Amino acid sequence: MQVFKAMLKVMKKRLPSAMIYVVVFIVVSVIVSSAATKDNSFEASRLRICIFDEDNTQESHALAEFIGKRNDIVEIENDRDAIIDALYYQWANYALIINKGYAEKIAAGDTSDLFGSYCLDERFSTVYMGQLLNEYVASVKAYTTMGRTVTEAVSCTEEVLAQNAEVSMLRADNGGDSHFSVDFAAYFQYMPYILISVIISVVSMVLVIMNRKDVRYRTNCSSMRNSSYTFQLFLGSFLFVFVIWLLLIIVGAVLNEEMYTGRAWLAVLNSFILSMVIAALAVLISSFEPKDNILSLITQVAGLGMSFFCGVFIPLEVLSGKVAAAARFLPVYWYIRANNMIAETEAYSFRGVMQCYMIQIAFAAALVLITLLVRRVRYSGAAISTTVRKSAVR
């Protein structure tokens, strides 16, 4: 098993750089998983509001007090430059000016030119405060129209607008299997990018090194049979791919807080099949013996390209028809289709999942056949290109 041991030594040197992808993926998955388990209750945001009361009446004080219950009031010097600086550096989100004559206009039912403001356009705080002030003024005007005094109208308005409904953020989860929710399906959805990046960057590079001319010629001249050499190469590659896949599956079980059961096993099998497809792709790439920089480029193009075009980073339903049609010629597309059906983000069909499996296996078989053809042409003999010189015997 000399070839197998040599492969492990080369993989050991290449592994640290590739494991960066795995570590980052695990860290992000842990963060997303912890965020998903938190309480999804809704809580209104509090803004930092600066109020300049130029009217200085009981009604204007009531408005300022009402705004202060929902937001944080900050003190800023009543100077235009100081206010602009506070808005720019986010010390304050909104500066409200209650114009002089506010109380008189409210009593008369006039709602024009009640306020002035300093704010940044196209900000949430601007829209929020505009809506809040409109609701407040409209409510006070409605009560005064019904015959209430301004003081009574302000009191009733504060009572009505202070009422809050209990809101919970819910997301439809059509997954019929409680052990494979949409949140857990997302873990498997992003797995292809990590598998592509790690497997191609390690397996392809190791095989390129093992298939260098000097190593290959020396092996051909030894007593080792070619079948044994090829078997050890495939054994080492399969072992590495299996370990990486198994590591991701174990992490997934930990994040799910229970072992895989029910439909989740279909997702596990789906990821294993894709791992074998990517391994076949890595062997094919290594047959062309690309250099390190070219291999890195191929890894990024394959990982990012299939991730964007096949629904890993962008949902399939968002992709255009032409892009989705082109993605059908890539194995990751069928992996994502199966994953979506398993999680029931699209209609679940066991037959449909099996069809996606078979298509991925067909991709793997095609890649293996192409690899055998390429290797037969490139490595058909150790001395094909060797020039033989005849020397005259004296």
Rank of each mutant, 00 (worst) to 15 (best):
M1D: 05
K13M: 08
V23F: 15
S34A: 14
A35C: 04
K38Q: 11
S41T: 10
L47S: 01
I51M: 09
F52S: 09
D53N: 10
D53V: 01
D55I: 00
T57A: 05
Q58Y: 04
Q58I: 03
E59M: 08
L63Q: 03
R70Q: 13
R70M: 04
R70F: 05
I73T: 10
N78I: 00
D85Q: 07
Y88D: 12
N99Y: 07
S117A: 13
Y118P: 11
D121F: 09
E122Y: 10
F124T: 11
S125R: 01
V137H: 01
V137P: 02
S139K: 02
K141Y: 07
T144Q: 06
T144E: 06
M146L: 15
V150S: 14
T151L: 04
E152M: 07
V154R: 02
T157Q: 06
T157E: 07
E158G: 15
V160G: 03
A165F: 00
A165W: 00
A172L: 14
G176P: 07
D177M: 09
S178Q: 12
F184N: 06
P192E: 07
L195N: 02
I196E: 07
V198K: 05
V198C: 12
V202H: 11
V203Y: 09
M205L: 12
V206S: 13
I209V: 10
I209F: 06
R212C: 10
V215K: 12
Y217E: 15
Y217F: 10
S222D: 11
N226E: 15
S227M: 10
F231Y: 10
G236Q: 02
V243N: 11
L246Q: 10
L248A: 02
L255C: 05
M259A: 14
M259S: 09
G262S: 11
L266I: 03
I273F: 08
A279L: 15
I285Q: 06
P290E: 11
L297Y: 15
L304A: 12
M306G: 03
M306E: 08
F308H: 06
F308M: 15
V318M: 08
L319T: 02
K322H: 06
P331A: 09
R337L: 14
N340A: 09
M341G: 07
A343Y: 04
E344T: 02
E344N: 09
V353H: 04
V353M: 05
M354N: 11
M358A: 15
I359Y: 07
I359G: 06
A362W: 08
L373H: 08
R375S: 01
R376Q: 12
V388L: 12
R389G: 06
R389N: 13
R389W: 14
A392Y: 08
V393C: 13
